[in-house]
Nucleic acid binder design. Structure first.
Lengths: 231, 231
DNA sequence: TTCATAGTTCGATGATAGCCGAAGCATTGG
DNA sequence: CCAATGCTTCGGCTATCATCGAACTATGAA
C-alpha cells in the first residue's frame, strides 16, 4: 500500500555518474550546451543526448533552443537545493571524490550554489545580515527588513522592488553542504552575487565547470566591511 | 577537475526501487527489522540483506542489534529531509506512484515525517506558531520564545528544558513535499507529535508502513483550538 | 540437545541500461 | 547549393547489478 510521489525514478537519474556530472556542472547556474555537458561528463555526444532526454523527462533540466545549440539549465533552484542536500549526506559518509583536487579548500570558502554565494563566506554573510537586522523571519520565509532595503540600496545599489518574482521568493535559506548551516538564496541572494561580480569584488573561477568563486583582495576587504565575522 | 562530495553513489542507492521502498518505509521514524523491510520492498530476505548492507555502507541507515533481530533506522533526520526534497521534485514532474491509493488525500492532510507532523496540518501548525510568536527566527535557526515555552508547558505539558539534544536542534524548518512550505521538525516537533499521540488526539494509521496520521474528532477540535487556521 | 526463526554468504542467472559507431536531421555559413 | 557543425536516432555490444536458491551462522525456545 504505497503512496506518495515515486522518489526512486528521480534518484536513479541522479545516480548515474555521467548524469550526475552534468547536473553538478549545471549547479553553476549557467546554461550549458549539450556538447559542453557531454565533455563535462566525459562521454560522447550520442550518449549525452540520451542522458539529457532522460533528465528532461524527469523534470530536472530544461532545454532552450538557440540556433543550432541546445542550452540546458536546471529547471528550478529547488533541484539545486536537493543536490546540495545529497552532497551533505555524501560528505558525512566520507564519499568524497577520488580526485579531490587542490581547489577543494577554495570550494569550501566560496562557491556558486546555482546563482548565489555559498560556502564559508555565504554562511558568514547571512549570519551578519541577521545580526544587522537586514533580514528577519516572519511567517514562513525570511524577509528583507526596511533597514535591509535601505542597506541594499545604499551599499549595493540593489533596488528591492525589482526582486519580486512570480515563482521564487526574495529570500530563502539554503542548506550549505560544507558548512552545514544556511546561506542566502532567492532572488536577493542572486542579485547580491551578481553585484559582487559587477563590482569586481569576486569572479567565478575561469576553469569551465568550476563552482569556485575567487574574491579579489579589495573585494574581500569590502565584503568583510559589510558582512564581517561576529565582532 | 571535479570537486566536492560524490552525489551519485548516494543517489544510486536511493535510485533502486527496492531500496527506495525500504527508505520510505523508514520515514515513519520507526525502526524496522530486516525481514519487515524485505516484505515492505517485496523481495526475499537474501536480497534485502544485500541492499541493507549497501545502505548502511552509504551512511543512510543504521543497524541496532536486539536479540536475533536487526533493527534499522534512518541515520539522521537530515536523510529524511533529503528524501522529502526528492519527493517534491518527483511530485512536480508528475512521477506519482502508479497505485495511488485512496489513502493519498489523508497522506496530504497529515502524515509522519520521520518523527514529526507533516502535511497540511503540519504546515498550518508552524504558521500558527509563528503568528502567535511561539517561535521566531534568530540567528540561523528557529527558536522557541519565552512565550512559546510557557505555551508548551501549559497547553501541552512539554518541558522545554528536556528538548536539548547534542546533535539535533530544538526547532528546525523541514520542507513539506505536498504543501511545498515548511513544517516544524527538530526535537520540539517530535515532542509535540508524541504528545498528540499520548493525548489520543491523533494516531498513526494501523496499516504497517503507512505514514498517514489520523486525527480523532476531539483531537482535531483541540488541535484547531491551539493552532487554528489564520483567523 | 533439538528445533525454529532471523539473518547472512555464495554462486548462477538474467535483465536493465550505459556506451559507442554509423547514419540521419536540422541549422548556419559560404 | 554544398559543406560544416550540433544534435539525435538506431543497433548491437557489454558490464553491472538486482534477484533468488541453497547452504551456513546465530540467537532463542522447548
Amino acid at each position: 500500500m504505497k503512496a506518495g510521489p515515486d522518489i526512486s525514478r528521480v534518484a536513479a537519474l541522479v545516480g548515474d555518474p555521467a548524469r550526475c556530472n552534468m547536473l553538478t556542472a549545471l549547479m553553476t547556474g549557467r546554461a550549458l550546451t549539450a556538447s559542453e555537458l557531454a565533455q563535462e561528463a566525459g562521454i560522447t555526444p550520442q550518449t549525452a543526448s540520451s542522458h539529457l532526454a532522460k533528465l528532461e523527462a524527469g523534470g530536472l533540466i530544461e532545454p532552450e533552443k538557440q540556433g543550432r545549440h541546445r542550452y540546458y539549465r536546471l529547471t528550478d533552484p529547488d533541484v539545486a537545493d536537493v543536490l546540495e542536500g545529497l552532497q551533505g549526506i555524501a560528505a558525512r559518509a566520507g564519499h568524497m571524490r577520488v580526485r579531490t583536487g587542490p581547489k577543494d579548500p577554495a570550494l569550501r570558502r566560496a562557491r556558486i550554489c546555482y546563482d548565489h554565494l555559498a560556502g564559508d563566506l555565504g554562511v558568514q554573510m547571512l549570519d551578519s545580515m541577521k545580526r544587522q537586522k537586514l533580514v528577519r523571519q516572519t511567517k514562513q520565509a525570511i524577509e528583507l527588513t526596511g533597514e535591509g532595503k535601505r542597506f541594499m540600496a545604499e551599499e549595493l545599489q540593489i533596488d528591492a522592488n525589482t526582486l519580486t518574482h512570480p515563482r521564487r521568493p526574495v529570500c530563502k535559506a539554503c542548506l550549505d553542504w560544507s558548512e552545514r548551516r544556511h546561506h542566502l538564496a532567492g532572488t536577493l541572494g542572486a542579485a547580491m552575487m551578481d553585484r559582487f561580480t559587477e563590482l569586481k569584488w569576486a569572479a567565478r573561477d575561469v576553469t569551465p565547470g568550476s563552482r569556485v568563486v575567487n574574491f579579489s583582495r579589495n573585494g574581500e576587504r569590502r565584503f568583510t566591511a559589510l558582512f564581517g565575522a561576529s565582532e
